[in-house]
Simulated scan of single mutants.
Amino acid sequence: MGSGRPAAWRTCAAAAVAACAVPVALSLVLLWLPLLCCAVAVVRFRRARRRMMQMCGGSTRGGGRFGAVDAGDRLGLLQKYLEDQLELVGAEAGGLLRDLRQGKCSG
């Protein structure tokens, strides 16, 4: 038995193991990929939600999981919403009135 023969056998065995390991590893990666994507999405969603809660001044008072918004905060948000809506309606109504005066609207 020559010294070159065992090295060739080992190389062939290593290639056979690699040929069997690649499909197994690939299938494991493909099986775990959706779970990994879901985990990343959950982490990003929680991080974005936490940032939004900090940005909006959300508190965790009241023992609720999502935090309680007190009446002052709610009233302020409602007031801002109504002002924005009135501004939009006013701008739209002003544009419609202008178009009616100029005769651009038919209907």
Results as ranks from 00 to 15, higher is better:
S3D: 13
R5I: 11
A7D: 12
A8I: 06
A8P: 04
W9Y: 10
R10T: 13
T11M: 15
C12L: 15
C12I: 13
A14M: 15
A14H: 05
A14K: 11
A14Y: 03
A14G: 12
V17M: 08
V17A: 12
A19G: 02
C20L: 15
C20N: 08
P23R: 00
V24H: 03
L26M: 12
L26S: 13
L28E: 09
V29A: 09
V29Y: 08
L31Y: 10
W32C: 11
L33H: 15
L33M: 12
P34Q: 01
L35H: 14
C38T: 12
C38F: 12
C38L: 15
A39W: 05
A39H: 08
V40Y: 07
V40C: 12
V40W: 08
A41C: 10
A41M: 04
V42T: 11
V42G: 05
V42K: 09
V43Y: 06
F45L: 10
F45Y: 06
A48Q: 06
R49G: 06
R51H: 09
R51L: 15
C56K: 09
G57T: 00
G57D: 03
G58S: 06
T60W: 10
T60E: 15
R61V: 08
R61G: 06
G62M: 01
G63H: 00
G67F: 00
G67E: 00
A68S: 10
V69G: 02
V69W: 06
V69T: 09
D70I: 01
A71Q: 11
G72Q: 13
G72E: 13
D73N: 07
D73C: 03
D73P: 00
R74Y: 05
R74P: 00
L75I: 03
G76K: 02
G76R: 06
L77K: 10
Q79I: 09
K80L: 14
Y81Q: 12
L82Y: 11
Q85H: 09
E87T: 12
V89M: 10
V89D: 04
V89L: 12
E92W: 05
A93L: 08
A93M: 11
G94Y: 01
G94R: 01
L96I: 07
L96W: 01
L97A: 07
L97C: 05
L100E: 05
L100K: 03
R101M: 07
R101P: 01
Q102V: 04
G103S: 02
C105S: 13
S106Y: 01
G107R: 01
